[in-house]
Design a protein around this nucleic acid. Structure first.
Length: 743
DNA sequence: TCGGTGTGTCATAAC
DNA sequence: GCGTTATGACACACC
């Protein structure tokens, strides 16, 4: 790399000097500041994005297969990497950000650009157009330059003398080649640019879908963008064919070109204009954005097929290892560059253009507009869709056979495509959250919203809101989850507490005080089981293990003494361990020698509780403690129930919101469908209008002039032939009415 | 050390 | 009036 850098830099400097000697000014700064990775990197050294840290990352991320930086088996490496990435991409929902740099090359006056021609050529060549050179790719280049140096240089379109620095015959030949390129830029374009791009694309395909998704997306984004790009014939660069702001402005029924200009509005008839005008474009786009969100989630496969206009087996989608549900973010920055007037042989520069229909390519490409607005102005009155549709279809790097479409404005297919494309852009602007998308996607698959556990169901909520039945219902659900437990809950008892009838064994172990150990376990299982909460994405990271209040049976086995140790150990050890698990009230009860369990204290009904108290001769302090224990215990369960209810409420609200969003999306989809059918109807009306009007004859048997007469629809369904001036007046009136209403 | 989370407890209102 | 429940607020432990 160093040698290449030195070689290239020195060669470039010498070439610059040489050009300056013959009167051509070359501004090297433009190359260095124009964000052209290969050239800039060669001259200035690798940037942070292209440093060898890429290899570190790759080596780390490629499980089990690494590459040695000094002995790179790139074939195996990239193959394994690609396959691994494909596997990993299967469960990913990716919305990468792609930045596509399109260079708008406009034409300078003749004669003023002789010096800049080589620079333009170099710039465009080394920038490699829409394709970024990824870090690993850079590594490839490094290795390639070690072996096939001159070949690589030819690919780069760059010329550099040998390291010796002297101008040898080879130097002169190379300079001569470049100079001839200046004179006839097109001749060299195909060789230098297209083949170079093809080579880079091959490498990029190998690099696709790596750890650095951003590296892969530019090319893919370029693929998608290329559908919207017009290809400059001189440079081979693409620039975006601006879509009209209004989709319907294109897809709306457009009269045939044979009609006089003034007839168009009338042909569209008041019906058409009136129905279209109230439709708020901005609102429509907002709606479409919402639809796009749902479309991206619901019909990923079909959407992607529509968006990419590619079958599932299309190499466009397979080679790049894209997740099928991945919209493309087209962050297009349009640069401008100057290029001399070498306009001939544009097809040599851009092989894509050769596949374009002759009608569009021949009219568009030789005269490249200086900016995108002039593009519209130039072609606004012509078949606009015919301009950009071929570009969309044919400007992909893959020479896939794309079926020819009929007249772009003839069918609704184009309309649908425009809609989809615009929706895609809108969704991109919206900033779709992939995590939410994947979650909602799962929901749509199951069509059941959040897969809430029964403990989170509204029924549990409603039941728990009952006064006394809440406890029993909750406890029943809890006990059902722990059928193997040794205890059951009392009918009147609250959640989690076991009855006293079957806790005698443990009472003995605890010294007749303390909670039933199953209590905490049941409470957790009732609504705090992490596995149950795992369905909640925002709770997944909560990994608490508050075992300080749990019984040994509920504790993790790692925290427990081994069974053998338990067997060997005396009951003291077990008692000590249980002692650690006791709550403060249990300790107090034990300290105060309360003769019955806290469980009894808390869960017994008032009458039984009073009976129990009456059986024993208890001091005032003991009675006070017992009442506190009962109060606190009940409040504790109440707090748990309260929190459970709160959580259920949140979950239900969340589900309601999702349901509403789903309904909204469905309604918006229906709205779009209605609008689409409305357009279809408009087109039919228009064609009928033309047909009827064309068949009308005056008393002399001559057809009526569309510039003088127009058809008007009457309220009763009849059609009247009226003078055009009158029709125009009526149309204006009806246009004003909606405006007045808005005011 | 800080912040998030879970849990227990208290105070209070409502039933 | 008492007991129970619901809930906000706080403290504490844990991660």
């Amino acid at each position: 790399m160093l040698s290449l850098k030195k070689y290239f830099t020195e060669g470039l400097l010498q070439f610059t000097i040489l050009l300056s000697l013959i009167g051509v000014r070359v501004d090297v700064d433009t190359y260095l500041t124009s964000q052209l990775p290969p050239l800039r990197e060669i001259i200035l050294g690798p940037s942070s994005a292209y440093t060898q840290t890429q290899f570190h990352n790759l080596r780390n991320t490629l499980d089990g297969y690494g590459i040695h930086p000094k002995s790179i088996d790139l074939d195996n490496y990239f193959t394994a990497r690609r396959l691994l990435s494909q596997v990993r991409a299967l469960d990913r929902f990716q919305v990468p950000t792609t930045e596509v740099n399109a260079w708008l090359v406009h034409r300078d006056p003749e004669g003023s650009v002789s010096g800049s021609q080589p620079s333009s050529g170099l710039t465009l060549e080394s920038s490699s157009g829409l394709q970024d050179v990824t870090g690993p790719d850079n590594g490839v280049r490094e290795s390639e330059t070690e072996q096939g140096f001159s070949e690589d240089l030819e690919d780069l379109g760059a010329v550099a003398p040998p390291v010796s620095g002297d101008l040898t015959k080879e130097d002169i030949d190379l300079i001569d080649i470049l100079w001839r390129q200046d004179i006839d830029l097109g001749a060299g374009r195909e060789i230098f640019d297209y083949s170079h791009r093809q080579k880079e694309q091959d490498v990029d395909k190998e690099l696709q879908d790596g750890a650095e998704q951003e590296d892969t997306w530019p090319s893919e984004g370029a693929e998608a963008l290329a559908r919207n790009l017009l290809v400059d014939g001189e440079t081979g660069e693409s620039f975006p064919a601006q879509f009209p702001a209004d989709i319907s402005s294109i897809t709306e029924a457009v009269p045939s070109e044979s009609e006089p200009p003034g007839l168009q509005n009338n042909l569209l008839s008041p019906l058409l204009t009136e129905t279209e005008s109230p439709f708020d474009l901005e609102q429509q786009w907002q709606d479409l954005m919402s639809i796009m969100e749902m479309q991206a989630m619901e019909v990923n496969t079909s959407t992607s097929e529509i968006l990419y206009n590619a079958p599932p087996g299309d190499p466009l989608s397979t080679n790049y290892s894209l997740a099928p549900n991945t919209p493309i973010n087209q962050n297009v920055s349009l640069h401008q560059a100057s290029l001399g007037g070498c306009s001939q042989d544009f097809s040599l520069f851009s092989p894509e253009v050769e596949s374009l229909p002759v009608a569009s390519s021949s009219t568009l490409l030789p005269l490249v507009p200086s900016n995108s607005t002039s593009l519209n102005s130039t072609f606004g009155s012509t078949n606009l869709a015919g301009l950009f549709f071929p570009a969309q279809l044919n400007s992909t790097a893959n020479d896939t056979a794309v079926p020819e479409l009929p007249d772009p404005l003839g069918g609704l297919l184009d309309e649908a495509m425009l809609d989809e494309i615009s929706l895609m852009d809108l969704a991109i602007e919206e900033g779709f959250n992939p995590v939410q998308a994947s979650q909602l996607e799962e929901e749509f698959d199951s069509d059941s919203g959040l897969s809430l556990d029964s403990s989170h169901s509204p029924s549990s909520l409603s039941s728990s809101e009952g006064s006394s039945s809440s406890s029993s219902s909750s406890s029943s659900s809890s006990s059902s989850t722990s059928s193997s437990a040794s205890s059951s809950f009392s009918e009147e008892g609250a959640v989690g507490y076991s009855s006293d009838s079957e806790t005698l064994d443990l009472e003995e172990a605890e010294g007749a005080v303390g909670y039933q150990p199953e209590y905490s376990k049941f409470c957790r299982m009732s609504y705090q089981d992490p596995s149950q909460l795992s369905c909640l994405p925002y709770l997944e990271h909560v990994g608490h293990n508050h075992t300080y209040n749990m019984a040994p049976s509920a504790l993790d086995s790692a925290d427990l003494p081994p069974p053998s140790a338990l067997k060997k150990g005396s009951k003291e050890k077990q008692a000590d361990f249980l002692d650690k698990q006791m709550s403060r009230d249990e300790h107090r009860a034990r300290a105060m020698k309360i003769p019955f369990t806290n469980d009894k204290i808390i869960n017994l009904p008032v009458e039984e509780f009073n009976e129990l108290l009456s059986k024993y001769q208890l001091s005032e302090a003991q009675l006070s403690l017992i009442r506190d224990i009962r109060r606190r215990g009940k409040n504790k369960m109440a707090a748990q129930n309260c929190r459970k209810r709160k959580l259920d409420t949140i979950l239900n609200l969340e589900r309601d919101v999702e349901d509403l969003q789903r309904d909204k999306a469905r309604l918006l989809r229906e709205k779009v469908e209605f609008l689409r059918s409305l357009r279809q109807m408009k087109q039919k009306v228009q064609s009928l209008y033309q047909e009827v009007f064309g068949r009308l004859r005056d008393e002399n048997g001559r057809p009526y002039s569309p510039s003088q007469y127009a058809l008007q629809y009457a309220g009763d369904g009849s059609v009247l032939l009226i003078p055009r001036t009158l029709a125009d007046q009526q149309a204006r009136r009806q246009e004003r009415k909606p405006k007045d209403r808005r005011k």
